[in-house]
Design a protein around this nucleic acid. Sequence first.
DNA 1: TGTTATAAAACGACCGGTTGGTATGTATAA
DNA 2: TTATACATACCAACCGGTCGTTTTATAACA
Lengths: 198, 198
Amino acid sequence: MAAKGIQTRQNIITKALQLFCVKGYYHTSINDVLEATDLTKGGLYGHFSSKEDLWYAVYDQALRIWREVVFRGIQSSADPLERIQTLIENDIKKKLGDHIFEGGCFFHSMLVELSGQSVAMSSHLMQGFKQLAGLLCAWLEQAEQQGLLKENLKFDEIANYIIISLNGAAALYAPSRDTTILDQTVSQLHFYIQQLKK
Amino acid sequence: MAAKGIQTRQNIITKALQLFCVKGYYHTSINDVLEATDLTKGGLYGHFSSKEDLWYAVYDQALRIWREVVFRGIQSSADPLERIQTLIENDIKKKLGDHIFEGGCFFHSMLVELSGQSVAMSSHLMQGFKQLAGLLCAWLEQAEQQGLLKENLKFDEIANYIIISLNGAAALYAPSRDTTILDQTVSQLHFYIQQLKK
DNA sequence: TGTTATAAAACGACCGGTTGGTATGTATAA
DNA sequence: TTATACATACCAACCGGTCGTTTTATAACA
């Protein structure tokens, strides 16, 4: 019995993730989710206490998926700068290009939509970006210790800028679906990181 | 007589622009606009045939404001690369930092919210970004003719990447209001453009 | 300068439809 | 028998938009 419940709960999350990505959070109605899951109100609200509660579950799922996609083939490389390049390429080419999140990037879309609407949810998102910035920072420090970088670089600044570029690419790719944008961003970020080297 | 009508129409646009920036298009109800303008339904719908019609008027206003802010002190510099730097600094420090659009950047917010919702409106926005890309491209070509740039640079790629960076900064600044993000983006974009020089 | 005609401008009740959410009932599997 | 899982009917609030009516500003005329 319990298995059935978990299964439907998971299905709700999966379908809601798709809808949130394509239509946005507010513009996805509970009825949209019900239609996608072949459920009714009572069935859904047995699993989630509110739409916002569902969103947090969807966020966790999205984070799990993103991590899987973006950290693929990263431990293999000892060079921290190469790890950064791979992460960037995975984020743009795989996350965006392969439409892991249909209709764009879940995190970026939610960040923009929820900023100014829900402090709780948007700061939840910001926390995730801060974690990523911390990771990039750590990798840059490793690169410095290996003597790969120019002097006097500000690592947190660089880390933030990379994240900003990734978000910008998501913003412009979503409406156009123009894959050259992805190639160009990867190419320019590659150039940018090369310039950090000694 | 006509003067009164034009005045209220302008006031509606101004207040709607603020609301769209802070709350987004769909999450701003007609009632929100009515409250801000001290009007009633009939009064507003005498000036605009629909909410979407109002949006297009707001877009024009936003573009006018943006141009005013971002092209300030640009004709003065003969160096095209300097013009690009000034445009970037104006866009980030003035448009975002001085909260010209309260709550973020109108164009970026709308692009994300409307992408996947309204093809007409989001492609209207994309057209604007394409125009800007064209301008940046032209300036880069000028810089090349002056012999300022490295060989074999792809100008459209660079132009798109700058626009992407500006949008990314808008995405991350809006929820955090952390001005260091602005400084960092300007600083890194400055570094990036320096690397394009011979 | 005061009066009146006229059209612009604003009002506000109302529409059908949708929103997120709840309370209650029922089928089913352990 | 009992808890789980889902269905159904319903709620008040809100959505964008319409429409007949009333107010108001101005131009023409006396």
